[in-house]
């Protein structure tokens, strides 16, 4: 199924690249909006900022795809492209903040209103899940930025090591080692 969706995604990208197909781009948006938002939100920890950056990411992706010079270029992986753009925009965001000496909200805070999507769960389980997520989120916040990113990409977005390697520009083995360390640290944080 994953392979089929990958081919479907490639076809959509191709349609956007060759025809400037807005319909195809809209489908790509639906596929990636949540992932990108989560990715950015985990980095900026601010809803409004995350929304703005996410919007900008999609606009940048569109411009990149329809750009005549990029048409000649082969896009290895769309996910690699969109996450790279997101990363760069987040870096830009931090740069701007640093120059303005603004305080960056690092903490996500307590989950007050939890709305679990899974309808199969009963109330007791939902409360347990709420507790778990709260704890995990706090633990993740305490991790190094590098670890945070990898944990998010690997276990939340369920990307492969190869895809993460394309996004981060790191070697596969390096990613595996870092991920292992990140999980170890996360576990430690949770046990505290």
């Amino acid at each position: 199924m994953k392979a089929i969706s990958k081919y479907k995604e490639k076809l959509l990208v191709h349609k956007v690249k060759e025809n400037g197909d807005k319909e195809a781009f809209s489908k790509l948006y639906d596929l990636y909006i949540e992932k990108i938002y989560r990715f950015i939100f985990m980095k900026v920890s601010n809803k409004e900022e995350a929304e703005d950056i996410t919007s900008e990411v999609f606009l940048k992706v569109w411009n990149y795809l329809i750009d005549e010079t990029s048409v000649q270029k082969k896009i290895k992986s769309f996910s690699g492209l969109i996450y790279s753009i997101s990363r760069n925009l987040v870096i830009d965001y931090y740069r701007k903040k640093a120059t303005k000496n603004e305080c960056i909200l690092e903490k996500i805070g307590e989950i007050e209103e939890i709305n679990i999507v899974d309808n199969k769960l009963d109330l007791e389980n939902k409360i347990d899940l709420k507790k778990d997520i709260n704890e995990i989120m706090k633990a993740i916040q305490k991790l190094k930025k590098e670890y945070q990113e990898l944990v998010l990409l690997k276990y939340v977005e369920e990307l492969s090591v190869k895809e993460i390697s394309e996004i981060t520009g790191k070697k596969n083995t390096n990613i595996r080692v870092t991920l292992h360390r990140a999980l170890k640290n996360l576990k430690k944080e949770l046990e505290k």
Partner: peptide, 30 residues
């Protein structure tokens, strides 16, 4: 631990975008 991390996706709000915003942003982008 891995399973618990995956559950983050299931939470509305928090790290996930607001559905209304997603739609509005899509229209704006289009």
């Amino acid at each position: 631990l891995k399973r618990q991390i995956k559950n983050i996706k299931k939470v509305k709000g928090l790290v996930n975008p607001d559905n209304l915003w997603v739609e509005e942003n899509k229209n704006k982008l289009m």
